[in-house]
């Protein structure tokens, strides 16, 4: 008796679910976004406000997973099981564009949302740093130039590199290769710092690149694959660690971490906007134009995100730490969205 009733109930629920599956064959009605964890807070704020402000659209869903991960999902193809927008903290690489095209993702709209600065920070109770790209290179390199040619990195304390630096063990927590931040770290810090050395300049260009990008493997450089909270946890655990963060993360945790000056410039809103602070990078989002008209609100959300009210002066995204575009550039980006201009 009990069993037959149970069976009946199970059959009923299965029938309801299969009816639901049939109803789902239409295109998804929620915008799906993935990519850079630096972009995640900004785009999430915009998504939430968009969904709450416009009754006809649903709140877009924003995932993370790093710039590379987001673009991989984005380039998987066209259809309701693939994402509509990829966020990145670096431009799309030619190889990624080729992968996209090979999978049928032909029409891609590229929009610059604003800028982000990356900062080097240590614990609030640790010493203050004033670093140069050359010093950071020397702290993290596998091999360094010396009088006897290239030798394995001998530096154990920052003061070994330069006597002006604190006498503190070298422990550097840098973003893993899945993060777009890593690319900026290498291009704006490590390479310039490395290539400025006379001994490196004598090498062939290819050998130079290989030499500069080799990272020491003795545990003093820690690659963080997760979010900035993981880097912060590393700082909590190791008093001497210096970590790489996004400026917005630093601003939310000013009571816990202390930023380092880069070549004498501290990252503050003024120095970043004036272009004095060297470590800034543009943030992008890529829109799959083939999904326009299929995913409701895709173009509207793109316009909303790039609009002055959301990501301009005195906007919620600026409050969250985004460095805003110039009005001219914003106009250009909005035009791109309206014209649905593809890469």
């Amino acid at each position: 008796m009990l069993c037959s009733r149970l069976l009946l109930a199970i059959m009923l629920v299965t029938a309801i679910i299969s009816a639901q599956v049939k109803a789902q064959t239409r295109f998804r009605d929620t915008i799906q976004i993935a990519g850079s964890s630096t972009m995640l807070p900004f785009v999430s704020i915009a998504a939430e406000e968009f969904g709450y402000s416009f009754a006809q659209f649903r709140v877009p869903v924003v995932g993370s997973g790093g710039s590379a991960g987001g673009l991989r999902q984005f380039c998987q193809g066209v259809g309701s099981h693939t994402i509509d927008i990829a966020n990145t903290s670096r431009p799309m690489r030619p190889a990624e564009l080729a992968a996209c095209k090979a999978n049928g993702v032909e029409q891609i709209l590229e929009v610059t949302l604003g800028y982000d600065a990356i900062v080097f920070a240590s614990r609030i109770d640790a010493a203050a740093f004033n670093l140069t790209p050359g010093q950071i290179f020397l702290a993290q390199a596998a091999q360094v130039p010396s009088a006897k040619g290239m030798v394995a990195n001998p530096y154990k304390r920052w003061s070994d590199i330069d006597s002006s630096l604190p006498e503190q063990q070298i422990v550097l927590a840098i973003p893993g290769t899945n993060h777009g931040t890593r690319e900026i770290y290498e291009e704006d810090i490590v390479l310039p710092g490395c290539q400025a050395m006379p001994a490196v300049q004598q090498l062939e260009p290819e050998a130079q690149l290989n030499f500069c990008s080799a990272i020491r493997k003795d545990g003093r450089v820690i690659e963080i694959a997760g979010d900035y909270t993981e880097t912060l946890a590393r700082l909590d655990a190791q008093h001497d660690a210096v970590g790489v963060f996004g400026v917005s993360f630093y601003q939310a945790n000013r009571d816990r971490i202390k930023v380092a000056a880069i070549s004498g410039v501290l990252p503050a809103t003024e120095t970043i906007l004036a272009g004095e602070y060297p470590l800034t990078r543009p943030l992008y989002f890529y829109v799959k134009l083939a999904h326009v008209g299929l995913t409701p609100g895709l173009l509207e959300f793109s316009r909303y995100l790039a609009s002055d009210a959301v990501s301009g002066e005195n906007s919620p995204l600026q409050d969250a730490g985004l460095i805003v575009l110039t009005p001219e550039l914003r106009q250009e980006m909005l035009q791109r969205i309206i014209r649905q201009q593809s890469l």
């Binding site: 789902q24 799906q32 993935a34 998504a47 709450y52 709140v59 995932g63």
Partner: peptide, 28 residues
């Protein structure tokens, strides 16, 4: 993913309790 709405059916985007713990643990 970051989902700012309560799902109305099993086909709507959503998170789960253990994942929400993971996400909040990562908040700035």
């Amino acid at each position: 993913s970051f989902v700012a709405s309560v799902p109305g059916s099993p086909f709507d985007q959503s998170t789960a309790l253990p994942v929400q713990i993971f996400l909040w643990q990562g908040n700035e």
